[in-house]
């Protein structure tokens, strides 16, 4: 397997939330590695702590135990180094498309004249030309997620965290955006961690899939996906696709045969 130093590694990460009627242990000694230009999907039952893992990686929450290493060094979360995309588009309603896109660079202190030019290029490439001065409420769901994606890419983060980014979209738009994502990740050589409930999506996009157990979340299995197609649609028609799909369903205890 990969012998390089992982881009990002989680070691024995444990997190417990205080709650009424006893603490909730959400993550228990969670460990996994993500390599440079990796595409890792995390799947697992609802409530097993996937979003919590993301918040810990992003540096929004601190683990009770365990450590995060980036390029081999222990870090306190990746604040300022991660791109972040959720199911909600998280666009600022008071900012135009252009102003939303440059947000990350603005926070980082890049002068507007500079970021504006890059932003316009991206907006053009991703088919949003003419909407740069529109407010988010005037956009469709798919367009909003495209804006969120551009905002994430333009920020040029070390690691991109995607928490069910396409799950609120219709199937067509989702296929299209999956394609856009995979292409962008290839072009810009990004490292991606994707949380999804869609096993199909996980297989079609990732190089590896990490399966979490139900709460408290631990790594139950890691599956290497050996599909080498260029687009998520081609991946889905690979003969090996359904093998991976069924293996992951079995990991999640989903019955794939009626009456079995």
């Amino acid at each position: 397997m990969n012998t390089a130093v992982p881009k990002l590694s989680l070691r024995n990460v444990t997190k417990t939330f205080p709650a009424k009627g006893g603490d909730v242990n959400v993550l228990n000694k969670l460990s996994f590695d993500v390599y440079d230009q990796d595409f890792v999907s995390i799947i697992g039952p609802s409530g097993c702590g996937k979003s919590t893992v993301f918040n810990i990686i992003a540096g929004l929450l601190h683990p009770d135990e365990g450590e995060i290493r980036m390029d081999g060094e222990v870090v306190n979360g990746l604040r300022g180094k991660v791109g972040y995309m959720l199911q909600k588009d998280l666009l600022f309603p008071w900012r135009t498309v252009l102003e939303n896109v440059v947000l990350g660079l603005e926070v980082r202190g890049t002068p507007l004249s500079e970021s504006r030019e890059i932003a316009m290029e991206y907006i053009y490439t991703y088919g949003l030309a003419g909407f740069e001065h529109a407010y988010p409420k005037a956009l469709s769901g798919g367009m909003k997620q495209r804006v969120a994606l551009i905002r994430t890419l333009i920020y040029d983060p070390q690691v991109i965290l995607l928490d069910e980014p396409f799950s609120a979209l219709d199937y067509q738009t989702r296929l299209y955006l999956e394609g856009v994502l995979v292409e962008a990740v290839e072009t810009f050589k990004k490292t991606v961690i994707l949380v999804t409930h869609d096993i199909d999506e996980a297989v079609a996009l990732s190089k590896r899939v990490v399966v979490l157990s139900s709460r408290p979340g631990t790594v139950k299995a890691v599956h290497e996906i050996g599909l080498s197609q260029r687009t998520p649609i081609e991946s889905r028609s690979d003969p090996r696709f359904s093998g991976y799909f069924h293996a992951l369903c079995a990991e999640l205890d989903i019955q794939t045969k009626v009456g079995s």
Partner: peptide, 12 residues
Amino acid sequence: RDLQSLMLALGS
């Protein structure tokens, strides 16, 4: 809260 989380993740 979510917009604030996003900003913090971006290093604000």
